[in-house]
Design a protein around this nucleic acid. Structure first.
Length: 279
DNA sequence: ATGTCAGCACGCTGCTGA
């Protein structure tokens, strides 16, 4: 099974590029973030014509997450237990929850498409919201793996955190001054790993960014960030055989500011082309 | 140069969010 995650920054603005990538790269499951549309606005037909089922969660022009899959998507879940909401500076479990998390099971793998809140600035209510959101995600992960330690669980998406200094190529991001690199954010990311997840891409692709700001010639200067991840439980991580960051998807006409991150899994997703039959 | 995008309100421009 080939699994990819991609913050597409509007599905409607670049659906041809996205479906084309999925087909050309033989992607079985594509988790998307920032689809920026409601369900009735999602270009379903183009995915279906290419052989994909789609499950999505979109409330308005902001955020929005989706999962496309060649095999049917089972046990679809919108948001995770404890996920905080946010509205006009009011944050908490009683505030409306934004469209930032969707999960489905494909080929026995529990896949989450996650769009972690940006945080905006260290003194903004969105920053506290981001940390609470990550804390709830950690708790969900701990509870889920405590109930089923052998579950192949993948948390994929845009985490809006640079876990290490090597993940920061944009000089405007400075520890103590901006989000994405602050010790509490990095601690929140580490807490996800401590909850039983591993970065499944870094061991196979040790360097490289997944995002470059549209402004300031960030891409030509290669002043990017690594903020998009595929985190996997032990059962998931053990099945990963290859990984890639598709830097070329930042090039050309109307790119997203993020590029796809891909892993190959030695788990049967219904394909019959790479698994010997033993009788 | 706060230097680019996307979507929305409506709208031919200005706002919000990233």
């Amino acid at each position: 099974m080939r699994l990819a995650t991609w913050n597409v920054n509007s599905i409607r603005a670049r659906v041809d590029r996205i479906v084309g990538f999925a087909v050309n790269e033989d992607v079985d499951v594509l988790a998307m973030q920032e689809i920026k549309c409601k369900p009735e606005q999602f270009p379903l037909e183009q995915f279906e014509a290419a052989g994909y089922h789609v499950e999505l969660h979109g409330l308005n022009q902001w955020n929005g997450v989706a999962i496309a899959s060649r095999e049917p998507l089972e046990d679809v879940q919108i948001g995770f237990p404890g996920m905080p909401g946010f509205l006009k500076g009011h944050e908490g479990p009683d505030a409306p929850r934004e469209a930032r998390a969707i999960a489905a099971t494909v080929g026995g793998v529990r896949v989450w498409s996650l769009y972690v809140p940006n945080g905006r600035s260290l003194d903004d209510p969105h920053y506290v919201y981001k940390l609470h959101w990550l804390q709830a995600l950690e708790q969900y992960t701990r509870d889920t793996l405590a109930a089923d330690p052998d579950l192949p669980l993948a948390l994929t998406g845009d985490f809006n955190i640079c876990p290490t200094p090597e993940d920061v190529g944009d000089p405007t991001l400075v520890e103590g001054v901006t989000t994405h690199v602050s010790p509490p954010e990095r601690a929140a990311f580490q807490a996800l790993l401590d909850a039983g997840l591993a970065d499944t891409v870094r061991p196979l692709v040790p360097t490289g960014f997944t995002y470059w700001d549209y402004k300031q010639l960030r891409f030509p200067r290669n002043e990017g960030l690594r903020i998009d991840f595929i985190l996997g439980s032990r059962a998931f991580a053990d099945a990963v055989t290859a990984a890639a960051i598709h830097r070329d998807q930042r090039k050309g006409e109307a790119p997203s500011d993020h590029v796809p991150v891909v892993v190959d899994l030695d788990i049967d997703a219904g394909d019959d082309d790479d698994r010997p039959m033993i009788f």
